[in-house]
Design a protein around this nucleic acid. Structure first.
Ligand code: SF4
Ligand code: SF4
Lengths: 137, 137
DNA sequence: GTATAAAAGACAAAAACGGTCCTGAAGGTA
DNA sequence: TACCTTCAGGACCGTTTTTGTCTTTTATAC
């Protein structure tokens, strides 16, 4: 239960490589993929998600590649994970507007527990920036 | 990410029905399935897992069925979830004896974050018993 | 115009999910 | 003993998700 997918793991490795590079340096996806030991085409998809979420900037053509869109101290691990895996939802009754199928959409007593779990995970992941991680090596 | 499967959701509903019954009362799987609104054959598998984990007792033959193996105040939500979904493992480097494939099995800096996530989730789920949940309705 | 590099989308194998079904074993009961 | 009840265990199966690959298109630099 609660397992990060490969995509999530690769996403972190990739963004961490970017964070370890000099600020503003443009990196090729091929370069990132090699350093992060991730299949290149797969990582390309991941970085597309990053770009859409405004975590990285992408540049096409000669001299193109990716840079961080913000200072690494302003990018949290939660953002990185959620960019590729979607929001952190321990149970479907926490989905925005979703609700529960039982009892006429009234949440049951367990609902609150899942909210606690969600809040706990979010707090941990929001408390870590990729700058912190990159510095620790 | 981190989503409980149907199996986990059904497991909780099923055990909560047992906890709502008079202590020691033997309940049929058909009865539990109907009350919990869960496919019966699927719930049967779930209760097999419970029995193996020592959460419930099962009795065969006429008059058989299931009872809680312990007082509901001694059964935590974590046990119930882990019985059917396996241990709470946010990332594969937390698997016992598993380790990471990179850097010669040395855990990286993100490893500690996943340990924090795991500890947080476990703390929440271990802090709730099915007795508490059943009482709140 | 041409080379470069990301964007976008189609495709696909493999695994996980969400069950169903059948046979068998254990335990009552007449 | 024969029969009925109830759970145990395993085979099976369709759908969805994961984990990618490949091809085509678009944007950019030179
Ligand atoms: S039964 Fe309770 S925990 Fe389960 S989905 Fe509904 S509100 Fe959430
Ligand atoms: S790279 Fe780090 S976080 Fe990822 S599996 Fe290895 S030790 Fe864990």
């Amino acid at each position: 239960m609660m397992e990060l997918t490969r995509k999530g793991e690769y996403a972190i490795r990739g963004i961490l490589y970017l964070a370890s590079q000099p600020l503003g340096k443009v990196s090729l996806i091929s370069e990132i993929a090699e350093a992060a030991e991730v299949p290149q085409t797969f990582l390309a998809k991941i970085f597309q998600s990053f770009a859409k979420m405004g975590i990285v900037n992408s540049y096409r053509g000669t001299g193109g590649g990716f840079t961080l869109a913000r200072h690494p101290g302003k990018i949290t691990l939660r953002e990185v994970v959620e960019a590729v895996e979607g929001p952190i939802i321990p149970n479907r009754c926490l989905i925005e507007g979703g609700g529960c199928d039982r009892r006429g959409n009234l949440p049951c007593c367990v609902h609150e527990v899942w909210k606690d779990v969600q809040a706990g995970v979010v707090r941990v992941l929001d408390g870590v920036t990729i700058e912190q991680l990159a510095q620790k090596g």
